[in-house]
């Protein structure tokens, strides 16, 4: 494909139509993602309403320090991503490279922290299944809470992993080539995706870690 600011695929009339289409397509994709997560949030809501005491008790066993740190890490990464999008728009290649790689590194940090957290929870027998242990009378419903916890954070972590890979690849592309200097749409779309992943976490964090922490 020829590369110039005005280059566009043959099905489009011009570059701006192509850019608008790509951005619009990304928003629709994010809408499908909301529905995808939506079913799990629905399950969480239904069971939390059905078993409030068990969910509160189970939530107190989650590792708040890990969760809070990770929230901070992801929020900072969203900021660096936003700066990366801006650098691409302003055609500053070094800044773009640094900010993309920093975002990817923060994503990796998030995954590492999450991994240690999972390891501790598994050692505390909080992984649903044969080895699950929890004080009565809430054992079975707490198992539901931890099932939802591992499920939702797991699917979220999968999205983070995909994002980290794509952002890292883009970072190297920005470093090695000037592709994004000619067309920054891809960085824009990546930014949308990354903020979406971040927002999902912003909802997950209170639902998992902050159920009646005060009592």
């Amino acid at each position: 494909m020829p590369d110039s600011t005005l280059a566009h695929a043959p099905q489009f009339d011009d570059a701006s139509q192509q850019r608008e289409s790509a951005t619009f397509g990304m928003w629709i994709f994010l809408a499908t993602e909301i529905l995808f997560f939506g079913a799990m949030f629905l399950g969480y809501t239904a069971y939390r309403l059905a078993y409030p005491a068990a969910f509160a008790a189970a939530s107190r066993h989650t590792l708040l320090a890990f969760g809070a740190t990770n929230t901070a890490v992801l929020l900072i990464s969203s900021a660096t991503m936003a700066f990366a999008v801006r650098a691409a728009r302003e055609k500053r290649r070094t800044a773009l490279t640094v900010r993309l790689l920093l975002t990817a590194a923060l994503g990796v940090l998030f995954l590492c922290i999450k991994g240690f957290e999972y390891a501790r929870e598994i050692s505390e027998h909080l992984l649903p299944g044969a080895s699950f242990q929890f004080d009565q009378p809430y054992a079975s419903h707490a198992e539901m809470f931890f099932y939802l916890y591992f499920l939702m954070t797991g699917v979220h972590a999968l999205h983070v992993t995909i994002g980290v890979v794509l952002i890292a690849i883009s970072g190297f592309r920005a470093w090695r080539t000037d592709a994004f200097m000619r067309n920054d749409t891809a960085v824009d779309l990546l930014g949308l995706y990354w903020h979406f992943v971040d927002i999902i976490w912003v909802f997950l964090f209170p639902l998992i870690y902050l159920v009646e922490r005060h009592s």
Binding site: G38, A39, Y147, L151
Partner: peptide
Amino acid sequence: VLATPVLAITLTLMALERLFGVGI
């Protein structure tokens, strides 16, 4: 676009439950 993701996650949840014996 709006309905199919729900089917995808629902079948996934069913499959996870079948695989691991725990599920929603």
